[in-house]
């Protein structure tokens, strides 16, 4: 119930923020971008305001993900009866919430200009990053789902029929109950991975479908904010995915190591080796995941600054 209440509060908060942002963007004086012949470059104030809008959206996504994580984590701790399942879902759900907020927040509205220009190249969700930027997270998600399938297939039900134990014979009852990421954890985690992937795609689509800055002199600037925002979204999504991939690997390692310590069968050594390897890989994945989330936050805060570098002549125009 506490988890549901926390989710309801977060959903309401997201709704309020989205509605407020939408209201502010409608009320705020529209952006004026100089297009007359007297100016050879776009005005700094116009660029600043346009880029501030892009930066705020990215910062809101990262900030909301962190706030949701903290709120859900506190609520999930209270669920001792669900054997850590809510905890396992927290990072994926919180980043999905942040990315959904990113997709829902309206873009900065620009005032009607006498002229508007448009590129004749289609913008796609994958247009603003290198191919590897998209292949690596997709591959990680596929490997993670495969990992969950393997742990699911090697799991056994506990007394209540929940597939959360390592399927081995002659395991002493003292360690047999150590949680292992079987189907009980695997199915919800696969569902969260799909939700996270969907949120990332939605956010990338939002970046590509946002109307371009109307002035052809702002083309490089327009591309730059899209590239940085794409990087923020991908790092946030990949960071969350690696975070709970690592967590799952650590949980599997814990079950394997604790069973290997007291097991008397011939495969004891390899189970211990597998457990230690899994623990090491899990720790690395959690570390890399956390680092990616930090980098996403850093990128989100630097959109304005980096676009100034991309369009230095604009910064000189008052």
């Amino acid at each position: 119930m506490k988890l549901l209440a926390a989710l309801a509060v977060i959903a309401a908060l997201a709704l309020v923020i989205t509605a407020a942002a939408s209201w502010v963007s409608r009320r705020r004086k529209p952006l004026a971008i100089t297009t007359g012949k007297s100016s050879t470059v776009p005005a700094r104030s116009a660029i600043d305001r346009a880029m501030l809008g892009a930066q705020l959206k990215a910062v809101a996504a990262v900030g909301f993900s962190i706030a949701t994580f903290v709120a859900l984590f506190r609520a999930a701790i209270a669920f001792s009866g669900m054997l850590g399942l809510p905890l396992a879902l927290v990072s994926g759900l919180s980043v999905s919430a942040g990315l959904l907020l990113f997709s829902a927040l309206p873009s900065t509205k620009l005032s009607a200009q006498p002229t508007a220009s448009a590129t004749l190249t289609p913008r796609r969700p994958w247009s603003f990053g290198s191919r590897s930027n998209f292949i690596v997270p997709a591959a990680i998600a596929a490997i993670y789902i495969a990992f969950l399938m393997v742990t699911g297939l090697t799991s056994a039900p506990d007394g209540k029929g929940r597939y959360r134990l390592l399927d081995l014979e002659n395991v002493p009852s003292t360690v047999a109950t150590t949680s292992y990421p079987g189907w009980y954890y695997g199915v919800p985690l696969i569902a969260v991975t799909v939700v996270l992937a969907g949120s990332v795609v939605l956010a990338l689509r939002r970046i590509s479908t946002t109307a371009a800055l109307p002035d052809p002199r702002m083309t490089s600037l327009d591309r730059k904010w899209r590239e940085i925002s794409t990087r923020v979204v991908l790092r946030l999504g990949t960071g969350a995915l690696l975070g709970y991939f690592g967590g799952t690997a650590l949980a599997a390692a814990r079950a394997m190591v604790s069973i290997a310590g007291v097991w008397d069968e011939s495969g004891k050594g390899s189970l211990l080796g597998l457990g230690v390897t899994s623990a090491a890989v899990g720790a690395v994945l959690v570390g890399v995941g956390a680092m990616l989330v930090v980098l996403a936050g850093k990128d989100a805060l630097s959109i304005r600054e980096k676009t100034r570098v991309a369009c230095p002549e604009a910064a000189l125009t008052p």
Binding site: R123, T209, A211
Partner: peptide
């Protein structure tokens, strides 16, 4: 403008044009 760009060869045969939604959004139409 599109007709001119196509006839002049600036837009080659097979070139994919942006979606109606993208072009309309960019041109504020």
């Amino acid at each position: 403008q599109l007709g001119d760009l196509i006839r002049s060869g600036t837009l080659n045969s097979g070139h994919r044009l942006p979606s109606i939604r993208q072009l309309a959004g960019d041109l504020r139409l």
